[in-house]
């Protein structure tokens, strides 16, 4: 008899884990809180480092999820998972109770709410936007300020909500640096007359071809990099945004006006994942993401038998790493079920 697996979350990790298990002949039920699958990725226009259209990955996932062994339940959250005899009992927000042989948490991440960094005036100053909002503009094919001007200068603030004790996030969200570089290049290509500035603390180009993209941004696209964390943004009389930053490499404060200020919002443990973890006794780390059983050898395992983790519910990850992590979660589940 086919084993029943339930996955919380129908984003990149959830779908990839489900499809890998379905290919092995298992029955999978994805419980997705939203009304469609794909998670945070569906909002993206293009992906680093090669800037392929994000739609290609989304259609790959859509094809993967169309499998006779996969059922997706939308507009529903998993509230709790617990052991009952030899199987798992999963409580849904609909009040329904499901039985499963294995369970994968793939609840992903929430984007940091940029308005919590009050000093940047997000939600107050019209021309302060977030990275996903810039992706929306790329998807729309045009780039304007709130008052309809073609921007002549765009600034990117790295580490918004990451590496910042003031918002209780000590962790690095990993993908924002390279996303800023990618977006900076896209702005330069879309508007060749527009100057672009990245305000960064460190450039964390951890993945293959990320460093090369950074170099390309400087060499080919004339993107400017200023090392320093922006301390405050304010409105000017001309509806521009004035930023204050230390040019740490010059050792002096620097001020400049930009037409559009993009906040590179980081990743936080998703609220739905957090409440599932609290209700089910799943251990979380100081960064509030789920703690894996072993950082090196068992990064898909929880402390509970039959409960596994996939993707950014454990830590910030790129899509590449999320897909790999989801596949390895599927392998772990398969191994677990075959040993029972």
């Amino acid at each position: 008899m086919a084993k029943q697996i339930i996955i919380a979350g129908g984003g990149v990790a959830g779908i990839e884990a489900a499809a890998t298990l379905a290919d092995m002949g298992h029955k999978v039920n994805i419980i997705e809180k939203g009304s469609s699958s794909g998670g945070n990725a569906v909002r993206w226009h293009a992906l680093f480092p090669d800037r392929r259209p994000a739609g290609e990955v989304i259609s790959y996932l859509n094809n993967r999820v169309r499998n006779k062994n996969i059922e997706v339940t939308y507009n529903t959250c998993v509230n709790k998972v617990r052991h009952h005899g030899s199987s798992l009992v999963i409580n849904l927000s609909s009040g329904e109770e499901l039985k499963a042989d294995a369970f994968i948490v793939a609840t992903g991440f929430d984007l940091f709410d940029a308005s919590r960094k009050e000093e940047y005036g997000y939600g107050i100053y019209d021309n302060v936007i977030t990275a996903p909002e810039l992706e929306d503009m790329f998807n729309g094919g045009s780039l304007y300020t709130a008052d309809g001007r073609v921007p002549e200068r765009v600034g990117f603030i790295h580490c918004v909500g990451s590496r910042d004790e003031k918002v209780c996030n000590h962790h690095c969200s990993k993908v924002c640096c390279v996303t800023a570089v990618k977006q900076a290049i896209e702005v330069r290509e879309m508007l060749p007359g527009c100057e672009v500035f990245c305000f960064y603390m460190d450039m964390r180009m951890f993945g293959p071809y990320y460093e090369e993209l950074y170099r390309e941004a400087q060499e080919v696209h004339n993107v400017n990099f200023i090392r320093g964390k922006v301390s405050e943004a304010s409105n000017t009389i001309n509806h521009k945004v004035a930023v204050k930053v230390e040019d740490t490499l010059a050792g002096r404060p620097l001020r400049m006006e930009v037409d559009l200020l993009v906040l590179m919002t980081g990743m936080e443990m998703s609220a739905t994942g957090a409440s599932l973890a609290e209700a089910s006794g799943l251990r979380r780390g100081k960064n509030r993401f789920l703690s894996v059983r072993d950082n090196h050898m068992h990064s898909n395992n929880s402390d509970l038998p039959g409960v596994f983790y996939a993707g950014t519910c454990t830590a910030p990850m790129s899509i590449t790493d999320t897909i790999s992590h989801a596949r390895s979660a599927a392998l772990e589940v398969n191994l677990y079920l075959s040993e029972r």
Partner: peptide, 27 residues
């Protein structure tokens, strides 16, 4: 002590970049 970027004189930068584009690569 402020560097007011909006008031900077970037003619020297342009002169060097035009003649020695590797100038842009410094990190």
């Amino acid at each position: 002590r402020l560097i007011n970027y909006d008031k900077g004189d970037r003619r020297v930068r342009q002169y060097i970049t035009d003649r020695e584009p590797t100038f842009k690569l410094c990190f």
